[in-house]
Computed example of a mutant assay.
Amino acid sequence: MGFGFVATQILAVSLPILLGWALNKLGIIGGDLDNRLSTLVLNVALPCSILASIDGAEALPDAGTLVLLMLATGVTYVIAIAVALVMAFLLRDTEDARVSYRFAIAFGNCGFIGLPVVGAILGAEAVLYAAIALIPANVILFAVGPLFFIDATADAGRPADRLRGVLASLKTPTLAASVAVLVLALAGVNRLGVAGQALGIVGQMATPLALLITGSSMAHYRPLEMLGNPRAYVAAAGRLLIVPLASLIAVNLFPLSPFLRAVIVLDGAMPVATLGALYCLKSGRDTKPMMQVTFLSVVFSVVTIPLVSLVL
């Protein structure tokens, strides 16, 4: 991948984000419409895109490759969590801010933004592998992510209740579609006929809608307020640069092709997962640090994603 190609792809991804910001300012999208469109993307468009990714695939990966792909993804998340814990400790901010920094550095938006961006840069075939990599990614996100927000001095509930909450969080159409793709790949099925074409048509709206909604969500932030926290810049750098580079070192230990390594690392180089703000609200913590890191990560990812792509 040359710089010109990557820059062109990122520009193509960035312009719809800018359009989404403008449409929000014009009052065309935003508010409840954004929430409903997000639900449409997460529950319908992305699952269809994932399922359609296997239709017509020229060569399906063998079981060993799929296991290695998921194992390597799991290892990169363990590394990301370790990096997040160390960096958040060194930043020495308030407890609420450190909680936000830990989550923001550890977890990227590998589904909502990651799948469309990976597909735009690496091609439609990459969506198939990225979807399979989403399986361990989602399990770790929903299992470990909420634990970052638990107040150690408060009663967090019985372990059985927390386990049921985690399992309930895993019941998402995106994860179900990823598991279905894994099963189909293991079974050697790569032709879905008319159903595959229909899924592809619906799945095509995932990328434009996700990017428009991302831009619209940025319009809710006051830029000066979002830019005034130096620690948020460090946390954003951890998410966008340090974690991907550490992950690149880790995936090189696995006997995977450069293409699959690129899928894993690039998907892990995405901006902060949007669930962070929801977890902050649910746990009663200050959302401002999380919003600051999220905003900065989205803005600077326009530059950092091409850099990571060139390193790959």
Rank of each mutant, 00 (worst) to 15 (best):
residue 52 A to L: 04
residue 57 A to F: 10
residue 59 A to V: 14
residue 78 V to Y: 03
residue 33 L to N: 01
residue 79 I to Y: 02
residue 75 V to M: 11
residue 51 L to G: 06
residue 37 L to I: 14
residue 51 L to I: 13
residue 85 L to R: 13
residue 44 V to D: 01
residue 73 T to V: 09
residue 59 A to N: 10
residue 46 L to K: 07
residue 30 G to A: 05
residue 63 A to L: 12
residue 53 S to Q: 01
residue 54 I to Y: 01
residue 86 V to R: 00
residue 82 A to E: 01
residue 88 A to I: 03
residue 63 A to V: 13
residue 55 D to Q: 02
residue 80 A to E: 11
residue 55 D to I: 06
residue 51 L to K: 07
residue 41 V to G: 04
residue 73 T to Q: 09
residue 56 G to D: 10
residue 39 T to H: 09
residue 86 V to K: 00
residue 36 R to G: 10
residue 56 G to Y: 07
residue 48 C to M: 12
residue 61 P to Y: 09
residue 33 L to E: 01
residue 56 G to P: 08
residue 86 V to N: 00
residue 72 A to P: 03
residue 77 Y to H: 11
residue 32 D to V: 15
residue 60 L to I: 12
residue 46 L to Y: 08
residue 51 L to P: 05
residue 39 T to G: 15
residue 59 A to H: 13
residue 47 P to H: 12
residue 56 G to C: 09
residue 74 G to W: 07
residue 68 L to T: 10
residue 83 V to F: 01
residue 40 L to I: 08
residue 31 G to R: 09
residue 46 L to W: 06
residue 61 P to L: 13
residue 73 T to S: 14
residue 57 A to M: 12
residue 65 T to R: 08
residue 57 A to H: 07
residue 86 V to Q: 03
residue 42 L to G: 09
residue 83 V to D: 01
residue 75 V to Q: 04
residue 35 N to A: 15
residue 39 T to R: 15
residue 36 R to Q: 14
residue 64 G to C: 08
residue 52 A to M: 09
residue 67 V to N: 00
residue 77 Y to K: 02
residue 49 S to L: 14
residue 88 A to D: 05
residue 88 A to P: 02
residue 71 L to S: 14
residue 77 Y to L: 12
residue 54 I to P: 02
residue 87 M to N: 00
residue 62 D to K: 04
residue 69 L to G: 04
residue 45 A to H: 08
residue 83 V to W: 04
residue 76 T to S: 06
residue 53 S to K: 05
residue 68 L to P: 00
residue 51 L to D: 04
residue 78 V to S: 05
residue 67 V to H: 01
residue 30 G to E: 08
residue 79 I to V: 13
residue 61 P to I: 09
residue 44 V to F: 09
residue 38 S to Y: 02
residue 62 D to R: 08
residue 37 L to P: 08
residue 61 P to E: 09
residue 83 V to A: 07
residue 45 A to N: 06
residue 81 I to T: 04
residue 66 L to A: 03
residue 66 L to M: 15
residue 74 G to V: 00
residue 77 Y to P: 00
residue 40 L to Q: 08
residue 57 A to N: 06
residue 55 D to T: 06
